[in-house]
Amino acid sequence: MKEKLSELKETVARLLKDRTVDFFIAYQAGHSQVEPIPFFLTTAEHVENLFLNNFCAHNLSKYLLDYLAGDEVVGVLAKGCDLRALKRLLTDHRVERGRVFVVGLPCIGIYDRKKVQEVYPAGLVEVVEEGEEVILRGETGDKRVPRKEYLLPRCLTCPDHNPEFYDLLLGEKVANGPLAEEDYSDVRALEEWAPGERRRYWTRQFERCLRCYACRNVCPACNCRVCCFDVAEPRWLGKGTSLDEQEMFHFTRAMHVAGRCTGCGECERVCPVNIPLMKLNKKLAKDIGALFHVPQAEIPTEVEPLGQFRLGDPDEFN
């Protein structure tokens, strides 16, 4: 991905110069190699600080919601998964296509910072890809590891490594197809557990939750104008933290994105205390797929599986 940096710089400089976009959202270097951070460029000079590597995980299209009120055209860099997130915002009629300029970024997978940091706690210099392996090059030497094991979970099951649509594509398209089949093995494993055991597991998770709302704030499916958790009157969710409130938060969040979740895993990635949010999201995706015969529940469609009614829908309360 790094090799596309100079092309990205040229492209963004041009877009800013010829006023195709008013500003552009991409990545800049962060505290270390493994944590690039979002970058808002307003002039062509800024492109010098652009940064690109296979740790550029953030879905940048969620930021478009911050600019609804204006009339700027916002340029945004989007990988395949980011595009699905953008599609979420577009199909939810939250963002106007005409106000986004998409620079598509074909992507063969983003590394999971947490997994890499376990191998390299500090001093990672670069990551070199060699077929199915990667070399983690650090200050203290190299480490050769299987590539697949260090990718973000979402990248393994990513259905489309190339953005579905764009205004401009950076480089060539890459070979497509998921690296692993989505078999919901995580979810199946949990389903096998005895109810009491599951209860204990989730209680431990929910009790650890800080209700910092990072998972919500980063989620492309959480795009309501006013979130029910922020409404003071009536107060749907108490401000206090207790197991009841935490459960209420988690069930509501999961159900509000059910059938709309794009499977990007951003929620779980940003959670500071490792709450396995994707297990909840996947469970719902799996059930929705099975119950409503939706083969790919995580690809945004104009009419949501839970946003429509068909006579043949399962109706277990009868």
Partner: peptide, 23 residues
């Protein structure tokens, strides 16, 4: 500021942040 998510991570984890509300 544009990149901030407006979440509670920094202030909730910070050992020195101490703002509160009542309910």
């Amino acid at each position: 500021s544009p990149r901030c998510l407006g979440c509670g991570i920094c202030t909730y984890l910070c050992p020195t942040c101490h703002c509160f509300g009542m309910t």
